[in-house]
Design a protein around this nucleic acid. Sequence first.
DNA 1: GTCTATACGTCGATAGAC
DNA 2: GTCTATCGACGTATAGAC
Lengths: 221, 221
Amino acid sequence: MTTAAREQVGAKGERTRRQIIVGALQALATGGVAATTTRDIAAGAGVRLATLHYHFESKSALLLAVLEHLIDETTTALREETGDTADIASCIRGSLRAGWRYLTRTLELQIVQYELTLYALRRDDAVGLAGYQYDAYIKVYQDILQGVAGRTGELDAAECADVARFMLAGIDGLLLQELAKPNRTRSSHAIETLIAATQVFASGLSNNRKARKARRPATRG
Amino acid sequence: MTTAAREQVGAKGERTRRQIIVGALQALATGGVAATTTRDIAAGAGVRLATLHYHFESKSALLLAVLEHLIDETTTALREETGDTADIASCIRGSLRAGWRYLTRTLELQIVQYELTLYALRRDDAVGLAGYQYDAYIKVYQDILQGVAGRTGELDAAECADVARFMLAGIDGLLLQELAKPNRTRSSHAIETLIAATQVFASGLSNNRKARKARRPATRG
DNA sequence: GTCTATACGTCGATAGAC
DNA sequence: GTCTATCGACGTATAGAC
């Protein structure tokens, strides 16, 4: 998605464009989306104001490009942060702890991401980007779960997606609480609670699965 | 909190001030915080631009006043929406379903509230308001739970607060998912999952409590 | 005390020279 | 592809009418 929907293809332009996005992200993280002007961004990226508008049709288009960049960075980081595990329960524990570790390391970026997501929701031409974002994050967790479930057979694809959605909702809600009223100790405990709750949810699904199998063995083999 | 920190006390001024806040809320809900100008708000509220700035020191101060108004409205609505219940499990089910019903009825207001909360987080003089907001919502659910727990003895105050925080995180996360990619059916199922998970969490706390009591009966009577 | 008219500096965006 | 110069609209400040 990052390199799609592009107009100019020159190598120089490509470099300048990326330079503006990175500079914009830094400016946005420092002062917030509402307070950051295009002049701030241009100065931070080392280009003139008019140059910025040559590469991006509008401030809006630049902000959405920054959001795409953030989504890519976050999904990549989340995938790399998580290690292999033996069963679903430890996979849930591992990916939630790893995800939380990444988010708390990058709190400023997460605020920008919330700001930009809400910004995208308000633009008719970008509501899809907000939806894409949540699909992408759910898919990260779903893929991680399915990597394990594929071997153990504990959950099918749809069930992994449901568990992933539950995990994302919990971690999202706790992140908002941590941003509004920071308290790492309290949040760490809350994450452990979320881990336990997700494990119960997943094993509930898994048990239903076994029960169905036992009741109607012919339909499965 | 709404009527605190006021300067003018005249009845006329009070009415105008309220009129501006309500007009502002409507304008913000329609166009979003970023796109709403003070001129829009003034026109919508039926006052002159300069009148707006007589009642509010700045656009910032007006936006924060709108956030306070929203917090008050939401906490009141959440308390009224929830009925009495016999035990903690049905209390959790009732308050989560009631809360979700209210939020989905007022999605536009919820977007504005997220926008304004993030806005407050960026202002050094208003970070406290963001924290106050989450404390207020947690207290709503905590009070509802304690009303039941006080009779049944299932949970103490601190445990009610933990359960309340878990509920808020879950509902907050699912609200974000619903806003980013609306799907009422999917969200309703997710809320039922959250209800079940919260009930398991609460009954786990409650069982620990009974186990402690059985192990050390002297310390309790 | 309540409101208005008017003006100021900065914002996002653009035109046209280079 | 980048520059300077400039536009209307924005948030804000204030002197004065009632």
